[in-house]
């Protein structure tokens, strides 16, 4: 056989209704954006799961490295002034 291929890998993101964030649903294979959109629709939204779809070629997604988690996602607990409870409000202040 010549050049058999399973086509390119794409990631699918679905917004379940307007106003909500797009959430990663899974991936599909397709050769171009039109096929990717069609396959994403057929595979991930057969039961009204969404009102809008994003498809992105997987190779264009950069992911952080789990080894960097300590550095990237340090909760910065020393920076207590980032939390509202750090501030002293005058006695009797309301709605703040």
């Amino acid at each position: 056989m010549a050049t058999d291929t399973q086509l390119d890998l794409w990631e699918v993101f679905i917004q379940s209704k307007s106003g909500l964030p797009y959430i990663h649903a899974g991936s599909i294979h397709a050769s171009d954006v039109k096929m990717a959109m069609q396959n994403a629709r057929d595979i991930y939204t057969r039961r009204g799961e969404g009102t809008s779809i994003w498809v992105v070629p997987s190779k264009h997604i950069s992911a952080s490295n789990p080894d960097d988690n300590d550095m990237l996602f340090d909760p910065s607990n020393d920076k207590v002034y980032r939390h509202p409870t750090f501030y002293v409000m005058p006695e009797g202040a309301k709605n703040i």
């Binding site: 056989m1 010549a2 050049t3 058999d4 291929t5 086509l7 390119d8 050769s31 171009d32 096929m35």
Partner: peptide
């Protein structure tokens, strides 16, 4: 799977053309 090979090849060729 074998009979569908031409569909995958055509899709790939279409992609390359674009």
């Amino acid at each position: 799977h074998e009979e569908g090979a031409w569909v995958r090849e055509a899709a790939e060729a279409y992609k390359q053309k674009h």
